[in-house]
Design a binder for these strands. Structure first.
Length: 612
DNA sequence: ATAGGGTTAG
């Protein structure tokens, strides 16, 4: 759509240029030329057409076939170009004709019978009318008709056809047309670029290819297209290319706006180059704005540069920049990541009220997750149940409702989401299963689990399976949980360390310590390394069962692998093994170290929890 | 349609 407007604008520009140049020639002071001109005018049988005249005659004309013929005959006159109004009027005319004559061939036949000569220009105009009226199937028919009549479509016709094919999602065919254009013009490239950049399955190789061709053939994108191309590169982690595009842009005399710099700063952070992001920020050609600062804060936080992030916040405050909603959302997220839940909540409660801002889906999703992490479910906070759901917001809400124990509400959200046109994802189904199990409908949950797997509609990850296994464990259905776990292993579902740990937890709870220990061995064979939570599960289980010998073996492994236990588990181990001084002699030095470091590791643990 | 923000498990 956008480029279409440009096209029209550009055409107008062209018309203006043309009339300007002829005016220029005609207003030459040479008296001979003036008399030439007046003679020419006198000889001309018809007065020049005006857009107003043509439009009113089109409106009054009937039947439709005659109107179309008249439209063609005007276009035949040199220096007359139909305006938008005329084209738009013709859309309904040809729609009626299409209805009446069924096929393009029949319309053409009828035109010939009424004395209209079928020339390339006629078909081109017909194509444009259909194209403008979004009647793309007919546009294709006209285009095909061109070759039937022996005409070779020109650049303009091919540009339109390429656009239609892109709109039909036939990218390969669109690009075939693009490549088949003998003399590509600015629009050929502009159309191709705009479509390629706005596709969901973005193909950067093709974007690059078209951009390179464009420049090689002597054209440059306009500022708008430059911006779109740049955005595409920056968002998909190809900031280096984005940087080149900006270079090109500046060479073309399009000055880089603060938006452009913001995109690059953000792009460098996203592609893992915080240093370059900061360098660029320091030397950007114009003064940063709220968006630039927001990108910096988010970027710094992503790299654990907390002080830097907050110094940016101070700079913003000193500059008196008023926060907007995105900034508020980023701050809620930032405080949550730092475990500063109270502050996150205050931003939510107060900034929104004082700043005249209305919380949106991002706000709610972030805030709900904040409440879940803090485990502090405050009923005073009204969550956005009235806000229209989108995928992420719905997923967050389901998760939150499960955590507060409102299973029914969670299921209601799921139903709501299913009825909307949302592409439900792994998070959604994971939440759904959690809610079902929580509602003690685990039999139903298992059926749904099978159903979802069979349907193969979405890519499932370890989370999805783990939640099902864990729910069964939490319900005390240990054998059912283990059956599912083993099935997932057999079916190679890509289980991870959490999945194994959950299964081990099930065995521990079912007091099947021997199996728990062999699973610990097996997971290593399967290439999944146990972490401190895995060892904690096994070790505290063994302490509980007072299984001294197995404990020693597992503890030895844990220490050998350099996995640091949490203070609680260390305490349990020391308490238990100290009863058998002879058996724990091999751990004496380790226990000593644990005692020495107890404060340090305590605070470490605290920190790691806070950092999420 | 030129910028920046959000969701899961033990």
């Amino acid at each position: 759509m956008l480029w279409r407007c440009n096209w029209v604008k550009q055409r107008r520009k062209l018309i203006n240029t043309l009339s300007f140049s002829s005016l220029h020639t005609h207003s030459s002071p040479n008296p001979n030329q003036i008399s030439d001109l007046s003679r020419h005018r006198a000889a001309s049988p018809k007065p020049p057409l005006t857009h107003d005249d043509v439009y009113s005659r089109l409106r009054e004309s009937s039947p439709d076939l005659k109107t179309l013929t008249f439209f063609f005959s005007c276009a035949k006159q040199s220096n007359y170009f139909h305006d938008d109004r005329a084209f738009d009027h013709m859309v309904s005319v040809v729609e009626r004709l299409t209805h009446q004559f069924k096929s393009i061939d029949r319309i053409v036949e009828a035109l010939i019978l009424s004395g209209c000569a079928i020339k390339p220009r006629v078909l081109l105009l017909l194509l444009e009318i259909f194209w403008r009226g979004h009647v793309y199937d007919k546009a294709i028919e006209v285009y095909k008709g061109m070759s039937t009549f022996g005409y070779v479509p020109n650049t303009r016709a091919m540009n339109m056809m390429m656009d239609v094919l892109f709109k039909y999602n036939l990218v390969d065919r669109a690009l075939e047309v693009f490549e088949g254009i003998r003399v590509r013009n600015f629009f050929s490239f502009d159309i191709a670029l705009s479509h390629l950049c706005s596709r969901k399955d973005l193909d950067l190789v093709r974007v690059k290819m078209v951009l390179k061709m464009m420049i090689r053939e002597g054209f440059y994108p306009n500022g708008e297209r430059f911006g779109q191309v740049l955005g595409v590169f920056c968002r998909s982690g190809c900031v280096a290319e984005g940087y080149q595009v900006v270079g090109l842009m500046i060479c073309c005399g399009v000055s880089a706006s603060v938006n452009v710099w913001s995109m690059l700063v953000n792009g460098f952070f996203r592609s893992g180059e915080p240093r370059k992001a900061v360098d660029l920020f320091n030397k950007m050609g114009c003064s940063p704005n709220l968006v630039t600062y927001t990108s910096l804060i988010k970027g710094f936080m992503d790299y654990g540069m907390v002080e830097e992030a907050f110094s940016v916040v101070s700079i913003m405050q000193s500059k008196g920049l008023a926060p907007d909603l995105v900034f508020v959302n980023v701050m809620i997220h930032t405080f949550t990541r730092l475990g500063r839940f109270e502050e996150a909540r205050n931003v939510f409660l107060h900034s929104l009220k004082n700043g005249n801002l209305v919380a949106d889906r991002y706000t709610f999703a972030t805030m709900l997750s904040s409440l879940c992490v803090s485990r502090d479910f405050d009923l005073r906070i009204t969550i956005g149940t009235e806000t229209e759901l989108d995928l992420v917001m719905g997923n967050s809400l389901m998760n939150y409702l499960c955590k507060v124990g409102n299973t029914l509400a969670a299921l209601k959200v799921f139903r709501n989401m299913s009825n909307r046109d949302l592409a439900l994802d792994c998070y959604t189904y994971t939440g759904f299963l959690t809610a079902l199990c929580q509602g003690e409908a685990y039999g139903h949950a298992l059926n749904m689990y099978d159903e979802i797997i069979k349907r193969k509609r979405i890519r499932l990850d370890a989370h999805f399976h783990t939640v099902m296994i864990d729910s069964l464990v939490e319900l005390g259905e240990y054998s059912s949980a283990m059956r599912l776990f083993n099935r997932c292993v057999l079916e190679k579902r890509g289980l991870d360390v959490v999945s194994y740990t959950v299964a081990i937890k099930g065995l521990v709870r079912g007091r099947r310590m021997e199996e728990a220990c062999s699973l610990l061995e097996k997971m290593k064979e399967d290439g999944v390394m146990p972490n401190r939570r895995t060892y904690r599960t096994v070790i505290s289980g063994l302490c509980g069962e007072k299984d001294k010998d197995r404990l020693r073996k597992v503890l030895r492994e844990c220490i050998e692998e350099g996995v640091e236990l949490d203070p609680n588990t260390k305490f349990k181990v020391v308490c238990f093994l100290s009863r058998y001084p002879r058996d724990c002699s091999e751990f004496r030095s380790v226990f000593e170290k644990w005692r020495e470091n107890v404060d340090v590791s305590d605070s470490c643990d605290e920190l790691s929890v806070s950092a999420g």
